[in-house]
């Protein structure tokens, strides 16, 4: 069998989602955001909810998510995406509203907004990409940076006496009565990506059931911030990040 026999439109089993735009992503090589964007595009396409979905992008590397995912988007101030999403969801209850946030955005400057959106049980989906660093500003310590982890503002490693401890914000949010589905996944292997896709799909389906906030944390990498290759970053993540941030469902009601 020749390659020309295989490379035919009818044999396609995996291709770029129609909801991913033609814009070249500004993300660094191997960035987790690209994978998560792709999953969102596929899920929105498969659930056929493009015209009902409104995304809220954060401040951070994913600020430009709206350039890549062909849906309506609002770009929120740093950490405020859950407040913005609250109003969009309350004023357009028939829509699927999601926030897309990083660990600095969600677990530091936006702590109050995520806590209270979760506590009110807003009918939104929260996509939380946790790579334990401020990527866009050049690799500073984030609230989820691990102890000992070197960043540009913890050049000698994160020291709990100086910097406090890494925060397991997702477990905190699971304690709140307004959250219905809280899970932590990753996007480093084909198997993990398939599980993440299932989790995000379920989160969007929960919107239809109006059960409250669904949170999908994706433990990710930042190879530029971590100063490792994408492949080495995935290995480092599995070895170190998963210990502090174990993969699996935290709450599902």
């Amino acid at each position: 069998m020749e390659l020309t026999d295989i490379i035919k439109a009818e044999n396609i089993v995996s291709q770029k989602s129609k909801l991913i735009t033609e814009n070249v992503m500004h993300y660094c090589p191997g960035c987790t955001h690209g994978v998560v964007h792709k999953l969102l595009a596929e899920i929105i396409e498969e659930l056929d909810i493009q015209e009902k979905t409104i995304g809220v992008s954060p401040v951070g590397c994913a600020v430009f998510a709206y350039n890549y995912l062909d849906i309506d988007w609002s770009q929120a101030a740093h950490g405020r995406a859950p407040a913005v999403a609250t109003a969009i969801s309350r004023l357009q209850p028939e829509k699927y509203v999601f926030t897309y946030q990083g660990d600095g955005d969600l677990a530091s400057i936006g702590c109050a907004e995520i806590m209270h959106a979760c506590n009110r049980g807003e009918n939104i989906v929260v996509i939380f990409v946790n790579n334990a660093i401020y990527g866009m500003t050049g690799g500073q310590m984030s609230p989820t940076t691990l102890l000992g982890q070197v960043t540009s503002t913890t050049p000698h490693g994160r020291d709990e006496k100086l910097n406090g401890f890494p925060i397991k914000i997702t477990e905190l949010l699971a304690q709140l009565d307004g959250t219905c589905y809280v899970t932590r996944q990753s996007a480093d292997t084909p198997g993990a990506i398939r599980k993440t896709k299932k989790a995000i799909t379920k989160a969007f389906q929960n919107t239809r059931l109006a059960k409250g906030v669904s949170i999908v944390e994706i433990v990710g990498t930042c190879s530029s911030g971590w100063k490792m290759s994408p492949v080495a970053s995935n290995e480092w993540m599995r070895e170190h990040m998963f210990k502090k941030y174990p993969i699996g469902d935290i709450k599902d009601i």
Binding site: I6, I7, N11, I12, S14, K16, G34, P190
Partner: peptide
Amino acid sequence: LVCPDSVITVYKK
């Protein structure tokens, strides 16, 4: 599946 930039089209026959 793992490509962050959706640059790979896969065919299967």
